[in-house]
Each structure stands twice: as structure tokens, then as C-alpha cells.
């Protein structure tokens, strides 16, 4: 069976959940082979084996010293050397860029932001803010697919996860954009927005840069915090937490929208959430058309009560 390369997302040697989802999807197509860039592969290996990775290709951390291009060279080289049947990455901003450059090198096509993929590498997309479902396939070369986190349920299956070091001679052409500094602006210990099983977002209705009403509820649920464009544009919450068309796309099991009207701009980023709860003062707000459970009321009263109730019932 041909190998399916899965680019591993990891932090401090921990494999991110989306990688286990990708390994699950890869098993439908062929034999999953994880591609690990950087340190910590030893500590992540068990998790990769648990989700069916037969191999783990390990490349050095130096590939991260330049933007995107070195990792595309690695994936293109592995795809060629191993005769890969497909390449799967998570649909993060950077991984989609890696997918694009790899596709150019291989003369392949790339499908981004897919919500499902089958054994024939036909991928499902949810487009136009969730209004339309499409199926698409790659016509040329090794198919490259970027899968949205939380879309394919992870299922365990044991694999050998045999480690193999890969050396890549990064070309000068791939070293033109150098990362000189990484700045961490992350807030606290909350899960990463696109990966989180639960997201609690605040919008215009929050009314100020005091987002504690949103954060407290998020923390009671172990959720990530998001924000609407209105809240970000008002300077109430940092840009990287924006959910919507010009921000992040999330697909959690539960999305809680506090004081968000639900304009198409926002819906495009959260409509594929499995369960949606909304609190808004305006009974006509379009977010209620999506909500599985909605409360018409003041979020500053409803959300703190909800936070207390959750703490009580846990």
C-alpha cells in the first residue's frame, strides 16, 4: 500500500489533536507516514503509533529557520522518494502555504479547508459561509489536501511508527525569507482556537475591552476564546483571535456566541460548528437562525449565570 504523508503539528513534543484526525483520514487512502519537523519526535512517537502511523520521518529543526519553503522542499522530496499516494496537512494558514508550494514543486493540485476526504481522495468542502457543499478532487500529480481541524473524528489504530531520519539539503532559494525572531503573545493556558473542542466568542455586545465575561465562561468550559470582527476592530481583543471570513475558521463541537449578531462575515468562520449556542439582545439577530439553543437577553447577565451554573454542575 502506498504511503500517505501526514505533516505533524506539534508543540513541545506533544502531537496536536488534528494530527490524529489526519492519520485517521490517511488510513482510508493508504499507509500513514508521519512527517515530523523539529525536536521532540521521541516523545510524540507513541501518539503517532496509537493512530496508525507506520513510519515517522524526522527532519531537523533548521527547516523552521526560514518561512515555509524548506518544509515544502522536504514534503516534495519525500513524496517523490517514497511514491506517496497523497499528502495531508492541517488547514492552518502556514500549512496551506506549505501545501501550495509543495504542489507547485510536484506539479500537483491542492485542496484546502476540506471537511472530509474519502479513500479516492475526493474531498468535501463547505463554501460560501457554509451555504454550499462541494466535492472536489486533484487531477494532476500527488493530491495534496489541507483538512480543517475537528472535521474528521480521530479513531485509534496501532501502527509501527518506525522512525527514519531524513536529511534535506535546503536550497538557497528556500532560504530567502529568514525568521529572525518569534514573539509569543499567547494568553494563558487556553487551547488553540482552531483546535479547540469548545469556543466561546464575544462580539459587539461585550461593549468594552473587558472580555472577562467571555474569558470566564470559556475557562469554565476549558474552551478557547474567540472574537468577532466588530470586537477586534474596536481594539477589544487581539487580531489572532478573530473568527470569521477575514480571520480564523473554526469547527468546534460547541460554539458559544456572546453578543454577536451573526453577519455572514462571522458565519463564514464558524458555521460548521456541531452545536451553536447564542446570547444576544436582539431577537432578530441572524445568529439565532443558526443557534441550536439561543437566549434573547443581556449577555452580561446570562453569561455570568451560565459560568456559575457550569461550575456548580461539574
Amino acid at each position: 500500500m502506498a504511503e500517505v504523508l501526514v505533516l505533524v503539528d506539534h508543540v513541545d513534543g506533544q502531537v496536536k489533536k488534528v494530527t490524529t484526525e489526519l492519520l485517521t483520514a490517511a488510513r482510508r487512502i493508504g499507509e500513514p507516514a508521519a512527517v515530523w519537523v523539529g525536536d521532540g519526535a521521541e516523545s510524540g512517537r507513541a501518539a503517532l503509533a496509537e493512530y496508525g502511523a507506520e513510519k515517522v520521518y524526522v527532519a531537523t529543526a533548521e527547516l523552521n529557520d526560514h518561512v515555509v519553503a524548506p518544509k515544502a522542499e522536504l514534503l516534495a522530496k519525500l513524496a517523490q522518494d517514497k511514491g506517496a499516494a497523497a499528502i495531508l496537512v492541517s488547514a492552518t494558514a502556514e500549512n496551506k502555504e506549505i501545501a501550495g508550494r509543495t504542489a507547485v514543486k510536484l506539479g500537483s493540485g491542492v485542496l484546502t479547508d476540506v471537511v472530509d476526504v474519502n479513500a479516492d481522495v475526493v474531498a468535501e468542502h463547505s463554501i460560501f459561509g457554509g451555504a454550499t457543499i462541494t466535492h472536489a478532487r486533484v487531477r494532476t500529480g500527488v493530491p495534496i489536501v489541507a483538512v480543517r481541524p475537528n472535521s474528521v473524528p480521530a479513531e485509534a489504530a496501532s501502527g509501527a511508527a518506525a522512525e527514519e531520519a531524513v536529511s534535506v539539503e535546503v536550497s538557497d532559494a528556500a532560504k530567502t525569507a529568514r525568521v529572525v525572531e518569534r514573539v509569543n503573545e499567547e494568553q494563558g493556558e487556553r487551547p488553540e482556537l482552531t483546535e479547540a473542542a469548545i469556543v466561546v466568542s464575544g462580539g459587539r455586545g461585550v461593549g468594552s475591552d473587558d472580555f472577562s465575561v467571555v474569558e470566564d465562561l470559556a475557562d469554565s468550559l476549558g474552551a478557547a476564546v474567540g472574537a468577532s470582527r466588530a470586537a477586534v476592530d474596536s481594539g477589544w481583543y487581539p487580531n489572532q483571535f478573530q473568527v470569521g471570513q477575514t480571520g480564523k475558521t473554526v469547527s468546534p463541537n460547541l460554539y458559544v456566541a456572546l453578543g454577536i449578531s451573526g453577519a455572514i462575515q462571522h458565519r463564514a468562520g464558524m458555521q460548521t460548528a456541531k452545536n451553536i449556542v447564542a446570547v444576544n439582545k436582539d431577537p432578530e439577530a441572524p445568529i439565532f437562525e443558526l443557534a441550536d439553543y439561543g437566549v434573547v437577553g443581556d449577555l452580561h447577565k446570562v453569561a455570568p449565570q451560565l459560568t456559575e451554573e457550569i461550575k456548580k454542575r461539574k
Binding site: 454550499t132 462541494t134 466535492h135 472536489a136 486533484v138 439565532f288 439561543g294 446570562v302 451560565l306
Partner: peptide
């Protein structure tokens, strides 16, 4: 390099429950 095989309108979300807050909205969401 890619091809759309087919497309269709997304199935509508099942209608949810919307209630007015009568002082117990948070508890109801819980």
C-alpha cells in the same frame, strides 16, 4: 489541477430553541 466533482446546497440546520431571558437564561443554557 483540481476539479469540482459535484455541489449542492448545504442541508439546512435543524431549527433550534430560542427563549427570552426571564432571569434564568444562563441556567437554561446550562
Amino acid at each position: 489541477t483540481t476539479e469540482t466533482v459535484d455541489f449542492d446546497a448545504a442541508p439546512p440546520r435543524a431549527a433550534g430553541t430560542v427563549v427570552k431571558d426571564e432571569g434564568d437564561g444562563g441556567a437554561k443554557i446550562a
